[in-house]
Design a protein around this nucleic acid. Structure first.
Length: 659
DNA sequence: GTTAGGG
DNA sequence: CCCTAAC
């Protein structure tokens, strides 16, 4: 509870600074400073600051206190909403301003950062009690605030972003099913990449046959099951590993796709829903759909018999019905410490040496399961289960859709020469096969062209699959979010290393630092916009080579929607002008393509638009009501600023008059 | 990194 | 939307 939190932080002795915002403009406009000269103005500023400091000490200004809710611009209803939403970050900004310390309580770094950046001049802010903002003056302030909250909650709720943890999934205990059919040519392509195919052509005298035919899944349904049983899925850790299990026959454990027909159709375009929240614009859906359609069709291969989750320690993986004669427990490759946390989707291989080895020296392998890289997603509680399913499914599809190749690791070393015989590389019926592992690896050759990124195909394929929030290439920093960006790039880097290195770096893979790098961190965000303009936001860099040499590509113009304008107006009403970063964090945090500079510029044009006649206005008409609010808020905050300036000036004079 | 303002 | 000065 926000209010309670505030009280708590006070009672705990923590005293948040009272720093009503003092816009730079109030501290002296640049033009004025230029006129006056920097040195002179610096002196005045310094004096003002000193005066402010003195005055604030004298006056012992009361903290803005909203215990009397009637006086709060937030209001009772908002309190309820605040409680409901809890610690949603979108409220932090306002909490910081209106309630003084919530943000800092929840996020000390924020406070420290602010504290650090607050220079001496901030003391002058203490001269002025925290303004309630024009919203408090507006007749419909209560409604306005409620709207703001619900809008924010919607915003938060419908966006997924990167994370480190699987709480959401844990809560949902989602079972995800997908029934697809195999396209034989794809399967053949996969097969052809295995070293075993080459093996068949050679060394027939050895008559080795690998029992990898369990990969042959023709005719079976692929089913993905993710943590349908919480008891199977210890989510104690931040991450979760998924193992893919192969089995030759269908088994009873596999949930029937019919049970969950709605899920099995999740991959079809018809069920695509927008997860973009506020940016829900008509037409966007289509693009997203198209993207997903492509992805899904590409991924339509039957690859998994079933799919289950297990801990990273490899403690759990599904047991297929054993259709093999030999059921002896074989030491799993998974127990090899060398591969824990490895990036590759490597197999939890059980290598079985045939008991009744034929005279032909067959090597019998049983691939118990494949492990796909860790998936980490964060999804707000308010996200629908369907959205969660899609997110996770997309993650899986991304892995598969990018194309896979199979790697073979023997005693930790990658076996790269497909032409060598098993015998030659040391896979022999008489040798211990404990160290034989298979890895599912991203195949750069098979990444769909549309998803190919000049910089890094893997990264882009991930980003595209999960929906870049702004439609820009996911390789761009803005498309991924803090941790995710990092982790994804680490992941990609590691993928590449694995691709190029002939020997897997086992130490690297097992280091704790690489725990995260072994994951695919997803950025599930609003679907990319679809109109022509937005599509242009996703430049195929291979195409416009003409401009590639030039400095930087100008961003495509993306006109503000009425909804965005509404959000902007609301935010400015609450926060005031000159706090564009806060405005951004408050209302546009999930719209990566809107920078605070954009918001500032938009406000500027809004004020201009509101002042000109309707006939002179261009573009999508902004409701007059909104424009009125723009003028009102602008006037109010301008007044606040001028008051501040006057006060500051007065304080300076006072200080100068002092002996 | 933010903010203000001109272009 | 870009650029830059100023902080």
């Amino acid at each position: 509870m926000v209010f309670q939190s505030r009280m708590d932080c006070r009672s705990s002795g923590y005293q948040a600074p009272v720093v009503p915002h003092c816009p730079r403009s109030a501290r002296g406009k640049r033009s004025a400073r230029k006129k006056a000269g920097n040195h002179q103005m610096s002196a005045i500023d310094l004096l003002a600051n000193l005066a402010s400091k003195l005055l604030s000490e004298r006056e012992n200004l009361p903290r803005p206190c909203f215990n009397d809710r009637a006086s709060s611009p937030v209001g009772v209803d908002m309190t309820v909403e605040l409680e409901r939403i809890g610690r949603q970050k979108s409220l932090k900004s306002e909490a910081y301003d209106q309630l003084s310390c919530n943000e800092d309580e929840h996020c000390p770094e924020n406070f420290n950062k602010r504290k650090k950046t607050n220079d001496l001049s901030n003391h002058s802010k203490a001269l002025q009690a925290t303004p309630l903002g024009p919203a408090a003056l507006f007749a419909k302030s209560e409604i306005l605030c409620e709207d703001a909250i619900s809008e924010e909650s919607k915003f938060v709720g419908e966006n997924c972003k990167i994370v480190h943890g699987f709480d959401a999934i844990q809560k949902c205990g989602t079972k995800m099913l997908d029934s697809t059919t195999v396209e034989s040519h794809e399967l053949n392509a996969i097969r052809s990449r295995t070293p075993f195919q080459a093996e068949e052509k050679m060394e027939r005298d050895l008559h080795m046959s690998c029992a990898i035919n369990s990969i042959n899944l023709n005719g079976n349904n692929a089913v993905l099951v993710s943590s349908d049983n919480s008891s199977e899925v210890p989510f104690g850790k931040d991450k979760i590993h998924h193992k893919v299990c192969f089995s030759k026959q269908e088994d009873d454990m596999r949930p029937s796709p019919d049970k969950d027909s709605e899920n099995s159709s999740e991959c079809t375009p018809s069920v695509i829903t927008n997860v973009g929240g506020k940016t829900d614009l008509p037409g966007k859906r289509m693009d997203y759909t198209r993207q997903r359609t492509q992805m899904c069709s590409f991924v339509k291969r039957k690859f998994f018999e079933y799919y289950s989750a297990s801990t990273s320690d490899g403690g759990i993986f599904c047991e297929a019905n054993d259709t093999w004669s030999s059921t002896k427990a074989i030491k799993s490759c998974n127990s090899s410490p060398n591969y824990h946390g490895a990036n590759d989707a490597w197999s939890s291989t059980k290598v079985i040496k045939s008991r009744n080895s034929s005279p032909d020296y067959h090597v019998k392998l049983r691939i118990k399961s494949f492990e796909v890289p860790e998936l980490v997603v964060e999804i707000p509680e308010t996200t629908t289960v369907g959205s969660l399913k899609r997110t996770v499914l997309e993650a899986v599809n991304t892995i598969l859709g990018g194309g896979l190749q199979l790697g073979v690791l023997l005693q930790g070393k990658r076996v790269t020469d497909d032409s060598k015989t098993l015998h030659q590389v040391g896979i022999s019926h008489s040798d211990k096969l404990d160290g034989l592992c298979f890895t599912l690896e991203p195949n750069t050759k098979h990444v769909p062209e549309k998803l190919t990124c000049p910089r890094d195909p893997h990264l882009l394929s991930l980003g595209c699959a999960t929906g870049s929030p702004d439609g820009s290439p996911p390789a761009a920093p803005s498309a991924t979010d803090q941790l995710g960006s990092d982790a994804t790039q680490k992941c990609v880097k590691s993928f590449r290393e694995n691709d190029h290195d002939s020997v897997l770096s086992s130490t690297n893979a097992s280091s704790p630092e690489n725990q995260i790098s072994s994951s695919l961190v997803l950025v599930a965000a609003p679907p990319p916009p679809v109109n022509a303009e937005a599509l242009a936001m996703v430049p195929h860099r291979s195409k416009p080579k003409s401009k590639s040499c030039q400095v930087a590509q100008r961003r495509v113009r993306r006109p503000f929607s009425v909804a965005e304008v509404e959000a902007l107006v609301q935010a400015v009403e609450k926060l005031g002008t000159g706090r564009w970063r806060d405005v951004k964090l408050c209302s546009f945090e999930n719209e990566k393509h809107r920078t605070y500079v954009d918001l500032k510029d938009k406000w500027k044009t809004l004020v201009h638009t509101a002042r000109i006649s309707p006939q002179q206005r261009r573009g999508e008409p902004v409701p007059q009501g909104l424009l009125d609010r723009v003028l009102l808020a602008h006037a109010y905050w301008s007044q606040q600023q001028s008051k501040l300036q006057v006060k500051s000036l007065h304080a300076t004079e006072t200080l100068l008059l002092l002996p």
